[in-house]
Design a protein around this nucleic acid. Structure first.
Lengths: 136, 136
DNA sequence: ATAAACCTTAGAGTAAACCCCAAGGTCAAG
DNA sequence: CTTGACCTTGGGGTTTACTCTAAGGTTTAT
């Protein structure tokens, strides 16, 4: 697979892929004789991982750390890897909790909202949020 | 409450608070005679909302949109508010799903990891991820 | 065989979200 | 009544994550 194909499959720009390569996130496994980057199915999967991670608020640096667990595996003991992994999981769980709180607020707001044509005087995320906060 | 106190309570800089004000995210309700910004408990809560939203990957623009549901409530019909709200909830639910996938990957990795002193040759987020992806 | 559509590197430009500094006004403590 | 910790505005600088341009080489389609 060439960079353009991978980019199209992921709906990102070729620039982004080169940027990720330059920043240690995704390196093509080989080059053609003429220097073109060659990617495989694995890179597609890895990019899906990266994009999902980005989407839920991880910075590229944090994503790199996650990937580093693999890349540096010979340098790290299993103990360290486990520690890092559990730490990251805590972070993920915290994010999930926050999002679930948002979800409850939004659900509350939607339920409370009549959905009709009249002015939304009594509709407000913040009001909903406060109420949810009170409930919790 | 003055800006410094609010900043300290939230562990952000006063610059950040002024930046948010300039960008329509959080305006103090009043000023002192000498021009100092005056905040209340409500602003503290609103900032908690903003910071949590930021933490789970919403941009300031997106957060503003969420808050706008309130600010513009007289301009919007309840129908519109409900539509926006449900759309945002979809987004939140998508993020939750993505994070739960991460959580499964990380759990899988941690479980698989012996946690001992030896090299982590067989520990890898990506390997774990692939396996989880296979399971799903 | 030549245009169109790719690819390369290197480097400059941009938007978001701060962060810092200067120059000066305000205010509580000693 | 002044020192030091606050506050004000305005503007410049930084980092992250792209995005674009220039100048040129490669591949595919007619």
């Amino acid at each position: 697979m060439k960079i353009g194909q991978l980019a199209k499959a992921l709906d990102v720009s070729t620039d982004t892929l080169r940027y990720y390569e330059a920043h240690g996130l995704l390196a093509p496994s080989a080059r053609t004789e003429s220097g073109y980057r060659v990617y495989t199915e694995i890179h597609l999967q890895q990019m899906h991982f990266i994009l999902r991670a980005k989407d839920v608020g991880f910075s590229l640096r944090e994503i790199q750390e996650l990937l580093h667990i693999q890349i540096d595996k010979h340098q790290h003991s299993c103990e360290e890897v486990k520690y890092i992994t559990l730490q990251k999981r805590n972070l993920v769980q915290k994010k999930i909790n926050e999002l679930q709180r948002f979800e409850r607020s939004l659900t509350f707001l939607a339920d409370r909202c009549c959905g009709g044509k009249e002015s939304a005087d009594y509709c407000s995320i913040l009001t909903a949020l406060e109420e949810v906060d009170d409930i919790n």
